[in-house]
Design a protein around this nucleic acid. Structure first.
Length: 225
DNA sequence: CACCAGGCAAGTA
DNA sequence: TACTTGCATGGT
């Protein structure tokens, strides 16, 4: 009864700690909403640096567009995105994604933005290669819809602090954050970006927990793993 | 050298 | 519903 009511303040304090440590992340790093969508697929279980090369390859050939990806043969597309890993798989996924945008919205992302968050999420989840995190990343970072993005770092960090369970489902964890945080696009944008930065910096194989901005906060004063 | 990164789908029990 | 496996490059 009393612990539940302070969760919102705790989550905001953790946000403040990360923000003061790292500053604004300026996510998503892309020049256009379409580039966000492509990046969201390419970064699946892949380091962002590898994605940047793949995106650069597409840009150099001026193929980073709906028509560009639609008209590029599958093998050719796979070759261009090779640095991002899983390239055969991701080439198919990119094709499915651009087909979806073309067929349902005439290739117009502004039109897509007019639909409700709930409807869009449901539709994106039917697209081949688009799971919950990719769908939510697109909704938040390409379409500016207020939804909280969960990833592996989110589960690691917040389960370590005793706020969620490691084997909670994606939607469980997402519901936790959306229940306790103000529903604001800008907050969700910065929050997830800061979680990823914190995870990358302190929560990898050789964690330097002693400098983590989240140390000693909340119920578990322990360090991250 | 092994291990892992801003997941997902398909197959199995 | 809840595991398991394949997908693959590049950095540490």
């Amino acid at each position: 009864m009393k612990g539940k009511e302070e969760t919102p303040r705790l989550l905001l304090r953790m946000y403040e700690r990360m923000y003061r440590y790292f500053g604004p992340r300026h996510w998503w790093p892309a020049e256009s909403p379409f580039e966000v969508i492509v990046g969201a697929v390419l970064t699946q279980n892949t380091a962002w640096g590898n994605v940047e090369r793949a995106i650069r390859n597409l840009k150099e050939r001026r193929l980073l567009s709906l028509d560009g990806i639609l008209s590029t043969p599958l093998d050719r597309l796979a070759e261009l995105i090779r640095p991002s890993g899983y390239y055969n798989l991701k080439a198919k996924r990119l094709k499915a994604v651009v087909r979806f945008i073309a067929e349902h919205y005439q290739g117009n992302l502004d039109r897509m933005r007019e639909e409700s968050l709930e409807k869009l999420r449901e539709k994106w989840l039917t697209v081949y290669g688009v799971g919950p995190e990719t769908a939510d990343s697109i909704l938040l970072y390409a379409l500016n819809k207020p939804i909280f993005v969960v990833d592996a770092y989110t589960k690691r960090i917040f389960s370590r602090h005793g706020l969620v369970d490691l084997n909670d489902s994606y939607e469980d964890v997402q519901a936790f954050f959306m229940r306790h945080l103000p529903c604001e696009v800008q907050l969700f944008n910065e929050y997830h970006a800061l979680v990823v930065e914190t995870g990358k910096t302190f929560c990898r194989k050789k964690p330097k927990c002693e400098d983590c901005p989240l140390n000693g906060i909340g119920k578990s004063g322990k360090t991250l793993t």
